[in-house]
Design a protein around this nucleic acid. Structure first.
Lengths: 139, 139
DNA sequence: CTCATTTCTGTAGCCACTACAGAAGCAAGA
DNA sequence: TCTTGCTTCTGTAGTGGCTACAGAAATGAG
């Protein structure tokens, strides 16, 4: 066997994995604890050794979390992809999540408009007319 | 003293207060525990009796929470209003919070755009080309 | 071999509630 | 007066998604 046919194992411990993926060490262990990331093999001393497959999975988890999917949705997505028959279900979940995002954007936008109005009316620095202070005064 | 000059006490127990203000009973007690709502007097049996002033304060807290102010900001707002010299500080806090809301709206909007794109590209139902499934495949 | 760094487990804290359990108060009807 | 059923009480634990320790053990470079 020539040396260049030996496959590179690409194993790494949790620190470098954290640095490469941008996921906190504690968070990686947390994902393992809740069954999101498979438990990797260990050294004789008990330290975790991650493979490229683990790294891929972790990056996927991070991306989905950044996109706002809750943990349970990420778990479902992983199950779908692992199960093979993915895209239809994945699409449905994505659309549901997108609807949720849009609703939240709408909520926040309405709130922002009210805050803007409050700030404007408060900007004079006078207590009478300030909608916040007034809300607490006896009527 | 004619009967109509007697001020109405407007006292009520926690259940009606909850119903009137729309704040959960448990949440009302929680606000008391964390010092946001003053502890009201009690009956001999130990039940809380709320006055109109408590009710006003609670409605204020609810409104500020609905507008997304974190508890500590609500606490600060109450302190400002109680302290008298309110509006300038209130304005500053409001503007800070508004900035925060706008940042969050921006974040969510960016995320929604990405999700939309993902959903579109996933809509064909074919696994190749699906950006989610691809992210997990070995490269 | 020494020493600094990394990693380990387990637990507790964060925010803003929410959900109990089990006991006790209270009001209306018989 | 007594019962019945509703309300309220305290205290604790759970939620989501991490984050922050403490104290011990493993590891790798010099």
């Amino acid at each position: 066997m020539p040396p260049n046919t030996i496959p590179r194992v690409e194993a790494q411990s949790i620190g470098p994995l954290s640095a490469q993926t941008g996921v906190n060490i504690e968070t990686i262990r947390y994902y393992e604890r809740i069954g999101l990331l498979p438990a990797p093999p260990r050294t004789r001393g008990g330290r975790r050794i991650y493979s490229a497959e683990h790294r891929r999975r972790l990056v996927f988890i991070r991306r989905m979390r950044e996109l706002g999917f809750p943990i349970e949705s990420v778990r479902a997505l992983l199950g779908m992809v692992d199960g093979g028959h993915a895209c239809a279900d994945v699409h449905a979940l994505t659309v549901r999540h997108l609807d949720d995002m849009r609703r939240r954007i709408g909520d926040l936008t309405r709130v922002a408009a009210i805050l803007e109005d409050m700030a404007d009316r408060c900007a004079t620095g006078e207590t009478p007319g300030c909608p916040i202070v007034e809300a607490l005064s006896p009527d």
